[in-house]
Every structure is written in C-alpha cells, then in structure tokens.
Amino acid sequence: MALTKAEIAEHLFEELGLNKREAKDMVEMFFEEVRMSLENGRQVKLSGFGNFDLREKKQRPGRNPKTGEEIPISARRVVTFRPGQKLKARVEAYAGSQQQQR
C-alpha cells in the first residue's frame, strides 16, 4: 500500500474541512509548484521534510543494453532529494521499532 494524491486530498478534506474540489486542487498545486521551481532551476527546501536539489551531469559513455552498441548518455540536469534531519530521525525510529518487534 502506498500514499497517493487521492489519500492526501481526502486527509485535507477530513482534517481541515476543505471541500473535495479545493482539497484536490491544493494537492495538485503543491506538487506542480515544486515541479515548476525545479524546472526553472531552483532548488526546493521544505523544512522538516527535506530538500529537492538539482545536479548537472556531464555527458558520459553508455551502451544500448540490448544491442551492446555504444551511445553517449547526453548531459542532463537531475533532481535529487536530501531528507532533512527531522525526517531521517523519524524514519530511523521506525527501523528501531521493527527490530524490537522481531
């Protein structure tokens, strides 16, 4: 099971009393604004959660795995996520509780 946009919208409806339309729009806008910022080359810092950073990769040699033919992988910009201290600590606490259960 995974958390999806539909469940996040449902949660906003239940917790904050936004109507279903507002809740759905809010979730869409949240992710769209993060995408837009990254698309425009600006990192996104969500304190308590983590940072979405951008890294530029140089062109490097690659290979078509099917044919073995050499084709260069072009220079590109990629998104990386660095979890914040608070999120890391919460996730580690989960690992701890799992070990206790075993």
Partner: peptide, 15 residues
C-alpha cells in the same frame, strides 16, 4: 498538513 502526512507515512514504513 500534507508535509506532515508524507513524513508520517515514511516514518511508518509506507511508500
């Protein structure tokens, strides 16, 4: 609320 729900999901091992 959205950020907290996402953190909570990961903290409980959910994707």
């Amino acid at each position: 609320c959205m950020i907290e729900q996402m953190s909570q999901a990961l903290a409980s091992g959910e994707r």
